[in-house]
Amino acid sequence: MTTYREFFRQFSLLYRPFEHHLNLQLAKHGLYRAQWTIIYYLSNQSSATLVELSNYQNVEKPTVTRTINRLEELRIVEQMPSKDKREKRIQLTLLGKQVYEEVRLTVDKYEQHILKGISESDQLNSIRLMEEIRKNILTKGEHE
C-alpha cells in the first residue's frame, strides 16, 4: 500500500471514533459536536454572523441556523443587532460562557487522554500537517 493511501486509511479510521467518543463526552452536558463547535468559536471570537459560523464549520447556513436556534432555546447564545441591519451577530450569553468553561474541562480531559504518549513535538508536527492538507483541499486547482 502506498504511503498516502495508508495515511488516509488511518485518518478515516481515526475520524469516526474520535467524533463518536467526543459526542459521548459532550452528551454529559446535553450537547453535540456541532453545538460545541459553535460555542467554542464564539468563546474565542466573542461574536459571529451566521455566514461566519457556516464558513467556519464548512456547512450550509440553514444547518447553522438550526443549531443556533437550539442553542438559543437552551439560552446559551443570543442574537444582537449589528451595524448591518440585515444580519445579526450571535454571542454567548452569561450561561453560555459558564457552559463553555464546564464543557472545556471535559473536552480537555478527553483530548489529553487520547494524546497520551504523543510528544508535544509530534503534536505540533501533526497540526502543521493538518493545516497544510486543509489548505490543499480548499485550494482550487489540479485535483479537480
Rank of each mutant, 00 (worst) to 15 (best):
T2A: 10
K83D: 03
E78R: 03
T2Q: 09
Y32D: 11
N44Q: 14
T65F: 14
P81Y: 04
E60N: 11
L24D: 14
N136H: 09
N44D: 12
I133M: 14
I39F: 03
E87G: 01
S119C: 06
K28S: 11
T93K: 07
E142D: 10
E78W: 03
L22N: 07
L42H: 04
Y110P: 00
R86G: 11
V107R: 11
E73S: 04
Q91G: 03
L14A: 14
N125K: 13
E120A: 09
R66E: 02
L92S: 03
I133Y: 11
Y56E: 07
N58W: 00
K135Q: 06
L53I: 14
A48S: 10
K109E: 12
R9W: 10
S47Y: 00
W36L: 05
Q123Y: 15
S82W: 08
K116C: 07
L95D: 10
K28W: 07
Q57T: 10
R16V: 10
E142N: 10
I39M: 03
N44R: 15
M80H: 08
I68E: 06
F11M: 12
I118Y: 03
Y4E: 08
N58L: 04
S12R: 12
Y4N: 00
K88Y: 06
L105W: 08
E87I: 13
N55G: 04
A27V: 00
I90N: 02
Q25V: 10
W36D: 02
V64H: 02
T93N: 07
W36T: 02
K61N: 09
T67W: 02
P81N: 11
L95C: 00
N58D: 04
Y41E: 05
I137V: 15
R104L: 13
K140V: 13
T65C: 08
Q10K: 12
N44L: 11
Q57E: 10
F18W: 05
Q57C: 11
E102H: 06
E52H: 00
E87V: 15
V51L: 14
T63S: 08
R89K: 15
F18N: 05
S119R: 06
Q35V: 05
T37E: 08
N55Y: 05
R134C: 01
K88E: 02
V103A: 06
N23Y: 02
I76N: 02
R75Q: 13
H20Y: 14
I137D: 01
V103S: 01
I114L: 14
Q123C: 06
R86L: 10
V99L: 04
Y40H: 15
N69Y: 14
R16E: 12
V64N: 05
D84T: 14
V99K: 03
L95Q: 13
T37A: 15
E132F: 12
L129A: 09
I38R: 01
P81H: 09
Q91E: 10
S121K: 15
V51M: 11
